[in-house]
Simulated scan of single mutants.
Amino acid sequence: MSTGPIGARSSRGARRMVSAAVLAVAAWPALAAPAPGPAECRTAPPTGDSIASVGARGEMRLSSGGKAVLGSVRWPDEPAMAAAAYRFLAEFRGRPLVVTARGEPDRWGRRRIDARLSGGDGAAEADLAEGLVAAGLAFAEADEGDVLCRPTLLSLEDAPRAAGTGVWAEPVAAAGDGPALRGRAGRFTVVSGRLLHVGERRARIYLDFARRGEDGLTVIVSKRTWRRLLERGLTAAGLTGRTVRARGIVEIRRGPTLDIASAEAIQVLDDRDPAGVRAAPEGGEAEGERAPRR
């Protein structure tokens, strides 16, 4: 599929981001083979392959005949950024890759893969997912899975987010700004703010970033994901009052919500406000259990 033209200035900027990202990740050591873990993250033996064609949304046809997408990344929704991400992958067409498939094919028959340039003949071993994220051309995200198989990609977001480049040109949304979040309904969004209340129910956990009656974000966490957070030492008491970053598709119920399945979609930050976001003011003592805002 065609991505359509974008401006020459945007094209030159995208090429510079691509070049810088490839040079940066080429210098990093190859990741160690992951230990056995969740089924969706388990890896098949690495194979040699190459990209025959790239679709507008990052779908790849491999020379071996299979369909694939890069795992642990979220393709950008904004058309100009999606076109830049497409050009990044297109740079690797026909080049020898080491491809590692994870889990089972998705409902469209695509394998989720890790892919890096083959290191033969002294070539640099640039990792494609790392390059996209480091260039600000994709988010780290578990997509339809319950686990982010490559959580180290989250740290690669730091530089483009601080610089406000690529998908981070739009600032991280403030969790207490309900009207702004309503404007992002249906879009993948990264949100940050002070967590004011944790409501534990039988089936779900509700993380409230606004007081009762105020318009702000609620993050809905499944019990399964909550257990994984507890295993990491993140309790209700330990989360309340902390600055938290969350990511997912904004839905509107009684207020804006993120319904997340991956524990990696919640990051606890330090006591400083995240760049470009004013944290919600801290309230008094934690309220008793209340009905969730839905």
Score class of each variant (00 low, 15 high):
Val244Cys: 01
Arg182Val: 13
Ala246Tyr: 01
Ser262Ala: 15
Phe209Thr: 06
Thr152Asn: 11
Pro256Leu: 02
Ser222Phe: 07
Thr43Arg: 14
Ser2Gln: 08
Glu59Ile: 13
Ala80His: 11
Arg224Cys: 00
Ala263Gly: 11
Glu231His: 13
Val221Gln: 02
Asp114Arg: 15
Arg202Val: 12
Leu217Gly: 06
Ala135Arg: 05
Met81Leu: 15
Pro46Asn: 05
Gly164Asn: 02
Gly183Asp: 13
Trp75Lys: 03
Leu269Thr: 03
Ala173Phe: 05
Ala246His: 07
Glu170Asn: 07
Ala84Gln: 07
Arg194Phe: 08
Ser64Ile: 00
Gly248Val: 08
Arg87Asp: 12
Val99Asp: 00
Ala32Cys: 08
Arg87Cys: 00
Gly213Thr: 09
Leu217Met: 08
Leu234Cys: 04
Ala14Arg: 10
Trp75Gln: 01
Arg278Ala: 12
Ala68Gln: 07
Leu23Ile: 13
Val133Leu: 08
Ser155Pro: 00
Ala159Ile: 11
Tyr206Gly: 00
Trp108Gly: 01
Gly94Leu: 00
Leu97Val: 03
Glu231Asp: 15
Arg87Gly: 01
Glu91Tyr: 02
Val191Pro: 00
Glu157Leu: 05
Ser118Asp: 15
Leu128Phe: 05
Ile252Trp: 11
Gly4Arg: 10
Val69Glu: 04
Ala20Gln: 13
Glu104Tyr: 09
Arg224Gln: 11
Ser192Phe: 06
Asp270Thr: 08
Ser222Met: 06
Ala286Tyr: 02
Leu89Thr: 02
Ile252Val: 15
Arg110Trp: 07
Arg245Thr: 11
Gly238Glu: 05
Arg15Trp: 14
Ala30Glu: 14
Ala246Cys: 13
Asp121Tyr: 13
Ala84Arg: 03
Gly248Phe: 09
Ala68Gly: 00
Arg204Leu: 14
Ala173Lys: 02
Gly288Lys: 12
Arg161Ile: 01
Asp273Thr: 06
Arg278Asp: 11
Glu214Arg: 12
